[in-house]
Amino acid sequence: MHGEYKMPGGKLVVVDLDVRDGRLAHVRLSGDFFLEPDEALRAIDRALEGQPADTGEHALAEAVRRGLPADTLMYGISPEAVAVAVHRALRPETA
């Protein structure tokens, strides 16, 4: 499943994922945002992996925030934007 979200004034945030036994699996974040350090990308994927597919946006954003390396810098992307992209992947009809 594939979801995209561009926050107003931000960059494109893309999430590809599957759902296995009601949980997010094979989560892969991508996009034209700026993120430092490099490892933060995989840290976000890991933070989302295994989350129940019915998790609300707020809780998903919190999970992303908690999973970030301490010195992470984000430009054009936010934990909230990632959560929106996840929801759009899960519910394409509402996008």
Binding site: V14, D16, L29, S30, G31, D32, F33, L35, D38, L41
Partner: peptide, 9 residues
């Protein structure tokens, strides 16, 4: 392509 872009997408 940018550091975080999906090659396929």
């Amino acid at each position: 392509i940018g550091r975080f872009q999906s090659l396929r997408n």
